[in-house]
Design a protein around this nucleic acid. Structure first.
Length: 374
DNA sequence: GCCCGGCGGTGATTTACGTCA
DNA sequence: GGTGACGTAAATCACCGCCGG
């Protein structure tokens, strides 16, 4: 009998680096299913489907107070709230702001206004007051929510000296993609006094975005717009937040996978080493004992649920190897115990640990190997 | 207690690429 | 098939709070 176990060459498998050389390209995230998933948004936005038009519309709404209270298409019947209820908007938020200017002029006047106090007091989160009033229709549930959520603007931390590259996006052109083209246009503020406040999302805003991210990793234009409205952010900010969140979630997942693969590799290396040793012993036994072939055949079976490998002998009543007069404890123990040492990650992509917001669950409640694993 | 440098978190930008009309 | 719009990933920058010395 020849045990055809080969888990790879120990010399090569002992080098986990090969697994991780292309760390950034190996792991695929779970975004695909997000795209396919029909999200449970119930929104009635009376705006065009084009994202650009949507954003342009909202920008127009924000910049145009004349439409206040007249837009009947905007009642956002929005079922955007996450499953986990968000904390109520704080009612005791400090009403004093860091920024100096509280009118809309600071937003448009901040660009290229280096050295002026108004530029320093710019609030990148702040929507014009018209934007708030415009959605404060009593007919809209979301509007009432937003009235409360508008308080979040007060707790947004606007701290420090800003990124010069933010200047154009924080300026009058704050709603649409065209800001990309002129991104460095304001870098010509030579005196360095063109200081912007870097946005810092409040905890409530971050929590809301997190909950939304748990629901869906990508946003369609309507979702983005709705989130921006609810959080009093610009759609671009919501978009950027989701981009960064996806990237950093993927990075974290990659790190988790890397560690997991590393452990798998180590375990497999040990197992391979042990099996090689066992094989050598069996071969030695074979050469020294002609009755070696009478050993029962060993089969390895893998539980489809937990992917653990257990070995069984085809002849349950076979006499122990010790009957041959040679102590082969490693062989016997290896073939009669559930092999926890073999990692569950043989098809590791299906069972690898997941970084938040993913969860690792055993979908089979009838699975019976849990106690054995412990 | 204050200052300073390192570090991590995070918002924002740029670039490249894929998809679609 | 070429092209532009659009969305996203990846890389990167830069600000800022925290922490230890």
């Amino acid at each position: 009998m020849e045990l055809g176990l080969s888990l790879g060459d120990a010399n090569t498998s002992s080098s986990p680096k090969s697994f991780f050389l292309s760390k950034k390209k190996v792991i695929s995230t779970c975004n695909d299913h997000e795209k396919k998933k029909n999200l449970g948004f119930c929104m009635a936005l009376g705006i065009n489907s084009s994202s650009e038009r949507v954003e342009q519309d909202i920008e127009d709404e924000e910049n145009n107070t004349s439409e206040e209270g007249t837009n009947n298409t905007l009642p956002v019947q929005l079922d955007l709230l996450p499953l986990v209820p968000l904390p109520n908007p704080p009612t005791n938020l400090p009403q004093s702001h860091h920024w100096s200017s509280d009118n809309g002029s600071s937003e448009n006047g901040s660009s290229g206004n280096g050295g002026l106090p108004a530029a320093r007091g710019f609030d990148v989160n702040r929507l014009p007051a018209a934007g708030m009033d415009e959605v404060s229709s009593p007919n809209s549930v979301a509007s009432s929510f937003r009235m409360d959520f508008g308080l979040f603007k007060s707790c947004v931390n606007i701290v420090g000296v800003g990124n010069k590259r933010n200047s154009e996006s924080a300026g009058g052109n704050d709603g649409g993609e065209p800001e990309r083209a002129s991104s460095r246009a304001s870098d010509d503020d030579e005196n360095g006094a063109n200081t912007r406040k870097k946005l810092r999302l409040s905890k409530e805003q971050s929590a809301y975005l997190e909950e939304s991210f748990k629901e869906h990793h990508t946003l369609n234009p309507k979702q983005k717009l709705a989130l921006a409205k609810q959080l009093s952010l610009r759609p671009r900010q919501v978009e950027v937040w989701f981009q960064n969140r996806r990237a950093r979630t993927k990075l974290k997942q990659t790190e988790v996978d890397c560690e997991y693969l590393k452990r798998c590799c180590e375990t497999l290396t040990d197992e391979n080493r042990r099996l090689h040793k066992e094989l050598q012993e069996l071969r030695a036994l074979k050469t020294s004992n002609p009755f070696y072939m009478q050993l029962p055949a060993t089969t390895l079976t893998m539980c489809p649920s937990c992917e653990r490998v257990a070995s069984t002998t085809s002849a349950a009543t076979a006499p122990p190897i010790t009957a041959l007069g040679t102590t082969t404890t490693t062989a016997t123990t290896a073939t009669t115990t559930t092999s926890d040492s073999i990692p569950k990650a043989i098809p590791f992509l299906n069972s690898r640990p997941r970084f938040f917001p993913f969860t690792t669950t055993n979908n089979n409640p009838n699975h019976s190997h849990q106690s054995a694993a412990s």
